[in-house]
Design a protein around this nucleic acid. Structure first.
Length: 556
DNA sequence: ACATCAAGCCAC
DNA sequence: AAACGTGGCTTGATGT
């Protein structure tokens, strides 16, 4: 059962059941209540059809309503357009509707920063619609939805795109829920970590003591004042002391034997922490509320952008949620009486390559807990070398000692290497490639001009590396999406703030009451098993999920 | 004053 | 070991 839903901007809305024959339009005064009721009415929950998750779902979640499944017309439109290599075209409901009617296509609305869950309740705001004023929004939604189902059915492999649009839509649900619940974050612990490393908190705009001291010692070592935050000044300083360098990257400086180098490296490392995840970050991104024992509890609420990366990985905006440095992860703590359940997929991309390429030898290695260790046995070298060889194959690295390694890989894992090599050849020719479920790489822009001039070969190779990596990275992102969708449907009902609270490419974090930890761990394991068979059927490849129950995200 | 770019490092 | 994929973010430098 599918139910199309449109909000009226005042807490109510319109619903229409979409069976073979669309049902009558039903006007409801309390949309949240109506959705909640329908969600539990039948033996199976409906699939909600809506214009875009961010139009409707944040308000539902704020009202305490969660849904199982949806069809997100905007996310679906983007996938279908992409499949036709029309990535640049607008994908909102209004854009899809305009194309159906031969009308001018509106640009996609820009989503304001921090809208996810940090924004005030919007009462099912309707004015973000890209449909022309006066259009029957429910009818337009039903029409676009029907068209999308037909376009999917017409694909060579409709089952895969059906799965892809379903899990992409489920990702939209999970993203909204995660933004709402937030990642539990202890400001007092974060402050303690910063103070331990940087010294006491300075007034805004000043360097913390440890950085100020390092800057002074750098000046002394050079013989004149240097702002270590300025690469230009550091370059001059290095030349001044007789060690000219071509850049101030850490690994370049590491080659230089001079007493200022360790000071600079230390400064860069700590300065990065201070500027990117220091006290200013804490103040901006983590709210606070008092805990039951007087501790300061907070939540970090990233704004996730589902499908924000061409490969289908998610992006986030604001707060840098996908790059929380290891050094501050200790600030992520479960609430008292709760635990974090952290599940991390190890070596996901080579396992994905083994599964999609059907390479028996690589699949045999991917049946092991430690794929790289098994590779090392095959390759006849150490684990680290085997890993570099595998990554070189997936990323297109050619420098260093990658070339002989790649030759070995090609001999041992011919089908796997052929899979990425042929994707690379396609890219070098300006073509597009697809993931396992049919997410399609964007065509390069201005290809003819770009490859005809000087630097054309470089450009070809660069695009070849992109498509080479795309077939693996995009399929790995699909694996993660299927896992996320499977997991959120398996989790038991939780009190407010419980459930999936964080997701980074190949890792999920749950925040659950301690007494539900065992059940959550089982749900993770079940979700993995289902993900593997849903995507790849019978395969020897394993996707081990390292799952830990802890009160501290820094703990492995 | 503000916008944009390049450099650099963080994550996966 | 160091140029190899996807991103976000902050800073200083440069341009309008």
């Amino acid at each position: 059962m599918r139910i199309a839903v449109v909000a009226d901007g005042e807490g109510g809305g319109w619903l229409q059941e979409l069976d073979a024959v669309p049902g009558p339009v039903r006007r409801v005064a309390d949309l949240a209540a109506a959705v909640r009721a329908a969600e539990h009415a039948g033996p199976e929950p409906p699939r909600w059809v809506w214009s875009a998750g961010e139009d409707v779902y944040p308000d539902l979640v704020r009202a305490g309503v969660r849904v199982s499944r949806c069809h997100d017309a905007a996310l679906t439109e983007a996938l279908l357009l992409g499949h036709q290599v029309r990535h640049r075209e607008a994908h909102s409901l209004g854009a899809a509707w305009a194309r159906l009617h031969g009308l001018p296509v509106p640009a996609d609305p820009v989503r304001p920063l921090g809208e996810g869950a940090a924004a005030q309740p919007a009462l099912f705001e309707a004015d973000r619609s890209t449909l022309p004023p006066g259009t029957d929004r429910l009818a337009a939604l039903v029409e676009v939805h029907g068209d999308q189902l037909r376009r999917i059915a017409d694909l060579p492999d409709p089952g895969r795109m059906r799965l892809l649009t379903a899990v992409e839509s489920a990702g939209g649900l999970a993203a909204t829920e995660m933004s709402h619940d937030g990642l539990p974050w202890r400001p007092d612990v974060h402050d303690r970590i910063l103070t331990d490393i940087l010294g006491s908190r300075p007034p805004a705009g000043r360097r913390p003591p440890v950085l100020a001291d390092l800057a002074a010692r750098i000046g002394d070592a050079v013989g004149r004042e240097v702002n270590p935050d300025s690469p230009a000044q550091v370059l001059k300083a290095m030349a001044w002391i007789g060690h000219p360098v071509e850049s101030t990257r850490s690994w370049v400086l590491e080659q230089v034997d001079h007493p200022v180098v360790p000071l600079l490296l230390r400064y860069k490392e700590l300065s990065r922490l201070h500027s990117a995840n220091g006290w200013a970050w804490l103040e901006t991104w983590v709210g606070e509320r008092p805990g039951p024992r007087g501790e300061r509890l907070g939540r970090f609420r990233p704004d996730y952008v589902v499908g924000g990366v061409v490969s289908g990985r998610w992006a986030t905006r604001g707060g840098g949620a996908l790059q929380i440095p290891k050094s501050v992860r200790g600030a992520v703590r479960s609430d008292p009486g709760w635990v974090l359940v952290r599940a991390d997929a190890g070596q996901l991309e080579p396992r994905v390559l083994a599964a999609v390429s059907g390479d028996d030898a690589l699949a045999a290695a991917a049946a092991e807990e430690d794929l790289y260790a098994r590779l090392a046995v095959h390759v006849g070298g150490d684990r680290e070398r085997a890993k570099i060889g595998m990554l070189s194959a997936m990323y297109g690295q050619t420098s260093g000692d990658a070339a002989p390694l790649l030759a070995t890989m090609r001999r041992l894992y011919p089908r796997a290497l052929d899979h990425v090599d042929s994707a690379a050849r396609t890219g070098e020719g300006g073509g597009v490639v697809r993931s396992w479920l049919g997410r399609t790489s964007p065509a390069p822009d201005d290809w003819a001009a770009a490859v005809s001039g000087p630097g054309g070969d470089r450009r070809r190779r660069a695009h070849g590396r992109f498509t080479r990596n795309f077939v693996v990275q995009a399929t790995a992102a699909e694996w993660a999406l299927v896992l996320l969708a499977a997991l959120r449907r398996r989790l038991p009902d939780m009190p407010e703030g419980g459930g999936i609270v964080f997701f980074v490419h190949d890792e999920v974090v749950l925040h659950v009451p301690a007494e539900l930890a065992d059940e959550a761990v089982r749900a993770v394991a079940d979700a993995e098993a289902q993900t593997r068979t849903t995507l790849f059927g019978e395969t020897p490849v394993r996707f081990p999920l390292a799952t830990v129950v802890t009160d501290n995200y820094a703990h492995l």
